[in-house]
Amino acid sequence: MTVSPTTADRAAARPRARAWIPLALRALLLGTLLTFLVAPSIFEPILKPLVQDNAPAIYNQGSLFTLTLLHLRIVAIATTAAILVAVTLAILVTRPFGAEFLALSRSLVNVGQTFPPVAVLALSVPALGFGEKPTLVALFLYGLLPIFENTLTALTTLPPAVMEAARGAGMTDRQRLFRVELPLAAPVILAGIRLSITVSLATATIGSTVAARTLGEVIIAGLQSNNLAFILQGGLIVGALAVLIYDGLSALEARLRRRAGL
């Protein structure tokens, strides 16, 4: 029996008919975000009613564009480090050598997730002082957990028949890891990364309370000067970034999932 391509295509074509709507919404969001970052003054009339008479409606203590880049940079560095460490650790505890640590690492992840991000941030200040460093460490530590948990889940629930076949075909341990285990685990690992980045984007704003330069600066300036427009623009930029990155990674994940035949 063969799969008839015509029926499969027709079934897929139906939802595709309206698939352009979310795509257009995302493009609109991205367009608005970029316009706002490059030329925020265009939006001044919209934000003006939110502030008292003489207060500025657009953040004026620094470039929003630069702050956005700094914000993304902090998240990118912390997440990259978290991916490297979390995936490596998950690989190690799922090898025969590290099997003794598997159960413990699971419970540590469980405990770790009860640590509030603010506490992690505040507790790393004594060791690292103010600025970017404690924020990076907090984002890194907090970002580790979802990636580690997902990688662990993915690597321990691979289909047994496939693993047996890989061994039976004469793959070495390393070949099995890189050619079978990791490609099959990729979508689930990516889901962990997506979760980690979404949390990090929001948590990075709190970093500004310890003098890290992120979009949190805009929000905190708004809180201090009672300027709703500042709070709103800071919050919405971070929200828009989160939505766009979340969506992008979701699409990538769906692609990987299809590729992996899952």
């Binding site: 028949a161 496939v162 693993m163 047996e164 076949a165 039976g168 075909a169 004469g170 099959l184 590729r259």
Partner: peptide, 17 residues
């Protein structure tokens, strides 16, 4: 050794990716 010996199992174990 295993590369020299064919091995087929129940549920085929094909690599889905």
């Amino acid at each position: 050794l295993r590369r020299r010996i064919g091995y087929a199992i129940q549920g085929h174990g094909l690599f889905p990716h």
